[in-house]
């Protein structure tokens, strides 16, 4: 499962970010294995995604989100 599969309001734990398509900047914003990610909002026309990752609010495109492996969290 990847970050792009999340539904609005769902929370997940990030599992793997080793894909070369993930920029270092995103990791520095806190997108690291073990951290929590919540999908806050989806923009009109279903892209980009507005996320809360490790308490940082940011938006990325789906094309990046599909490279971030996650696991749903029961919170």
């Amino acid at each position: 499962m990847t970050l792009a599969d999340l539904k609005r309001g769902q929370v997940a734990i990030i599992k793997d970010v080793s894909s070369p398509y993930i920029p270092l900047k995103l990791l520095e914003m806190g997108c690291l294995p073990g951290n929590q990610a919540r999908l806050m909002m989806v923009a009109p026309f279903s892209d980009p995604l507005y996320l809360n990752i490790n308490d940082t609010h940011l938006a990325i495109r789906k094309e990046t989100a599909v490279h971030i492996q996650i696991e749903l969290s029961n919170e």
Partner: peptide
């Protein structure tokens, strides 16, 4: 191309 923007409060 990648896209990343902070959504500040």
């Amino acid at each position: 191309s990648f896209f990343l923007i902070e959504m500040p409060d």
